[in-house]
Every structure is written in structure tokens, then in C-alpha cells.
Amino acid sequence: TGIVNVSSSLNVRSSASTSSKVIGSLSGNTKVTIVGEEGAFYKIEYKGSHGYVAKEYI
């Protein structure tokens, strides 16, 4: 489990790349469930599926 550490919002992406499609966003202080790691990204549970967020903001 981690907490989103941004002042505005954090993009949730379809894969572990900054060039991948943005599938949603999370507000600061949102609790997320981390299910894996891939490079500079965490794989998280997101809306019944999975998404990826940059580690530096969790």
C-alpha cells in the first residue's frame, strides 16, 4: 500500500512508460494498493483492473 504524494493529480498509465496511454488520474493523498514493480513504475490496482504510476510520486 502506498499514498499518492502530489499536490494536484497523478496520471495512471496503461503500461510502465511515460509514453503509454493515460487511463485515469489519482488525487494527492489517495491510498493505492501496489501489486508489482516495473522499472520506475509501480503496478497498482485501479478500477477493477491494473494501472501504472511513477514510483517517485508514491
Rank of each mutant, 00 (worst) to 15 (best):
S20R: 02
G24V: 03
S8A: 11
S25L: 13
S14W: 08
A40K: 10
I23H: 02
V53H: 00
S7R: 12
K55T: 04
K21D: 13
V22R: 05
N11K: 14
V22W: 05
G39R: 04
V32D: 00
G24Q: 02
T33E: 07
V22N: 05
N11I: 15
S14T: 08
I34V: 06
G36Y: 04
K31P: 10
E45D: 08
G48F: 06
I23R: 02
S15H: 14
A40V: 09
I34T: 02
E37S: 09
I58V: 11
H50W: 15
G2R: 07
I44M: 01
Y57E: 08
V32A: 02
T1S: 13
S19H: 13
N11Y: 12
K47P: 02
E56W: 06
V12K: 00
A54W: 09
I44R: 00
K43G: 02
F41K: 01
N5F: 05
G24Y: 04
G24A: 04
N5C: 13
L26G: 00
V4D: 03
S9R: 13
I23S: 02
Y46H: 05
V53P: 00
I3E: 06
I34R: 01
I3A: 05
V35M: 09
T33K: 12
S9Y: 11
I23E: 02
T33D: 06
G39Q: 05
E38L: 08
I58Q: 02
I58M: 05
F41V: 02
V32K: 00
G28E: 09
K43A: 06
V22H: 05
I3K: 08
E38N: 08
E56K: 13
K55F: 03
T18F: 14
A54G: 10
T30V: 10
N5P: 06
S25K: 14
V6Q: 09
S17T: 09
S19T: 13
T30A: 12
R13G: 04
I3M: 10
S7M: 09
S19W: 06
V6R: 09
L26T: 02
Y57W: 10
S15T: 11
G48L: 06
T33P: 03
L26R: 01
G2Y: 04
S19Q: 13
V22M: 06
N11Q: 14
L10D: 02
S8G: 15
V6K: 12
S25Y: 14
V32T: 02
I58H: 02
E37A: 08
E38D: 10
G24I: 03
V6F: 06
T1R: 10
S8W: 12
G2M: 07
R13F: 15
K43E: 09
G28A: 14
G39F: 05
N11C: 14
G28D: 09
S49F: 10
S17N: 12
K55Q: 06
V35I: 15
E37M: 09
T1F: 09
T30F: 07
S20P: 02
T30E: 14
V6S: 12
F41T: 02
I3G: 04
K31A: 10
Y46K: 00
S14P: 03
V12Q: 00
S25C: 12
I23A: 02
S7T: 13
Y42R: 01
S9T: 11
I3C: 10
I44N: 00
L26Y: 02
G2N: 06
G48V: 04
R13C: 09
S15G: 13
E45N: 09
N5E: 07
G48N: 09
Y57V: 05
E38V: 09
S49E: 11
T30L: 07
G36N: 06
V32N: 01
E56T: 07
V6D: 06
S9H: 15
N5I: 14
S27K: 15
T33A: 09
T1H: 14
V22E: 04
Y46W: 11
S17Q: 08
V4I: 09
T18I: 15
Y46A: 01
T30M: 09
K55W: 03
T1A: 09
G24F: 07
I44E: 01
T1P: 09
I34L: 05
S25F: 14
T30K: 06
G24T: 02
K55H: 03
A40D: 15
S19G: 12
A16Q: 03
S14D: 13
G39D: 08
T18A: 14
T1N: 10
I34Y: 02
Y52C: 03
G24E: 02
K55I: 06
R13H: 15
N11E: 15
V32L: 05
F41L: 02
S27W: 10
I44G: 00
S20M: 03
E38W: 08
A40L: 13
R13I: 06
F41A: 02
L26E: 01
L10Q: 05
S27F: 10
R13Q: 14
K47N: 14
S27I: 10
S49A: 14
S15Q: 13
I34A: 01
F41D: 04
Y52F: 12
G36M: 05
N5W: 05
K55M: 08
G28K: 13
E56C: 11
Y57P: 03
Y57Q: 08
H50R: 04
G39T: 03
K21Q: 13
N29V: 07
E56V: 10
V32I: 09
G28F: 14
I34P: 01
G39C: 07
Y42E: 01
Y42V: 05
V4F: 04
G48T: 07
K47V: 06
S19C: 12
L10Y: 03
L26F: 04
K43W: 06
K31V: 15
E56M: 11
V53W: 00
R13V: 09
S14M: 15
Y42A: 03
G24W: 05
S7K: 14
K43V: 13
T30R: 05
S27R: 13
S14C: 10
F41E: 01
S19E: 13
H50F: 15
Y57R: 07
H50E: 08
H50Q: 07
S49Q: 13
S7P: 11
V32W: 02
G2H: 07
K43L: 10
V32Y: 03
K47Q: 14
V22P: 06
I23M: 08
S8I: 11
V6A: 12
V22I: 14
L10N: 03
V4C: 06
A54M: 13
S49R: 12
